[in-house]
Write a protein that binds this DNA or RNA. Structure first.
Length: 372
DNA sequence: AATCCGTGGGC
DNA sequence: TGCCCAAGGAT
């Protein structure tokens, strides 16, 4: 980082010119129409590892559906997860709901207004706590996200690894040492510059309001910064998906409460080596006494942050099932469903699948199976 | 410190 | 294709 005593003029550019630029260049975003901490909170949780353009329709729907912390706390977890469907990183929604209940129980719905209180809530870490505290309450704390790490690294011509905890810590302290009174605006301005101008690839340096102070621009090193380790690429897993149909209803299983897509609804799915449909048939045997042989339906590929599923989809028909009718939930008819799966399965007709919180990995199979 | 945790967009 | 990245947090 730059020595702030010997570089007063560079610090002035960073503070004043950036804030002036932000006044006119900032985007007109829905969560910039308010200082309501609840709304800021929702937007910041949604913004974690998610581009702003992606989250805007989710934000508008979520605020409409759950306008305040009381209504969010009173909602069912299924309803909250459903509102999050498609956004990914679903533990964010669970933590949001949990935190809302804590705020109502602990302080009668009054939103915590200090950084050190905010970061005690589930889902709120150093970045989000700093963002809410500075934007909603103008507390003098920094909010260091990926944009800020990139912008400041370039401005100071720093080759420190931005993935290292040590770098994040020193960056946070450095920013707080130069933080102007308008802390919230300054934090937002750094992020906005990173999103619109000081982008990861092909930064628009000729349009940059603080170019004349930027130490990587004058050194010609902007494209080498920030320094970060490569992510390791995803592991590919071969999967079999089972589509079981009973009187027009499709069979769904709720996923376990931890791990990938936890708590979300899914089609039965199993990892496989052979890929002939028998692995998923074996798993379905835990639920159904008799099944037809697998019928090949199609293939699909889904890329997660750390896993790739190569899915082959098979259809099954029920045979010889006790009490097989359209109206009886399956759990009531299966004698051999294990205890922990009770109430975690159901049949839904294609027309009512929208009731379930279904991850994209499965919802994109719906067109594939519509004729099964 | 290194992993796990989704999805969509850019090139 | 593939590879990078995005207003990170929890463990």
């Amino acid at each position: 980082m730059l020595n702030t005593d010997n570089n007063r003029h560079l610090i002035n550019i960073l503070q004043l010119d950036l804030l002036n630029w932000f006044k006119t260049a900032k985007r007109n975003l829905p969560f910039r129409q308010t200082k309501d901490p609840y709304s800021i909170w929702i937007s910041e949780i949604m913004a974690q590892q998610t581009q702003i353009d992606t989250l805007i329709p989710y934000y508008n729907r979520f605020i409409d559906r759950f306008p305040d912390v009381i209504s969010l706390a009173a909602a069912s977890e299924d309803d909250v997860i459903k509102a999050w469907e498609g956004l990914g990183y679903y533990s964010r929604a669970r933590n949001l709901h949990q935190a809302a209940k804590m705020i109502v129980a602990d302080s009668n719905g009054i939103f915590p207004n200090r950084f050190d209180q905010l970061i005690k809530l589930p889902g709120i870490g150093p970045y989000t706590g700093g963002a809410i505290a500075s934007i909603a309450f103008n507390e003098k704390v920094s909010a260091v996200d990926g944009n800020v790490l990139r912008v400041i690294s370039r401005y100071c011509n720093s080759f420190d690894d931005i993935g290292a905890a040590k770098t994040k810590k020193s960056m946070t302290q450095w920013i707080e040492s130069i933080l102007p009174a308008a802390a919230g605006d300054f934090n937002e301005a750094l992020m906005e510059l990173g999103a619109l101008v000081c982008t990861p690839q092909s930064p628009k340096c000729l349009l940059c309001p603080i170019r004349c102070g930027c130490q990587s621009f004058s050194s010609g090193t902007t494209d080498q910064i920030p320094v970060k380790k490569k992510k390791q690429k995803q592991i590919t897993k071969k999967m079999e998906v089972g589509i079981v149909k009973q009187n027009g209803g499709l069979f769904f299983i709720r996923r376990p409460e931890s791990g990938l897509l936890s708590g979300m609804w899914s089609f039965p799915i199993a990892e496989t080596a052979a890929g002939n449909g028998n692995d998923i048939k074996k798993k379905l045997g835990d639920y159904f006494p008799a099944l037809s042989d697998p019928v090949f339906i199609g293939e699909s590929r889904h890329v997660f942050s750390h896993i790739i599923w190569e899915m082959t989809v098979y259809g099954f028909n029920l045979a010889g099932m006790v009490g097989e009718t359209a109206d009886i939930p399956y759990a009531q008819t299966a004698a051999d469903v294990s205890e922990d799966q009770t109430g975690r399965t159901q049949f839904k007709p294609l027309s009512a699948v929208d009731d379930l919180a279904l991850p994209i990995a499965f919802s994109k199979l719906l067109t594939l199976i519509k004729d099964f």
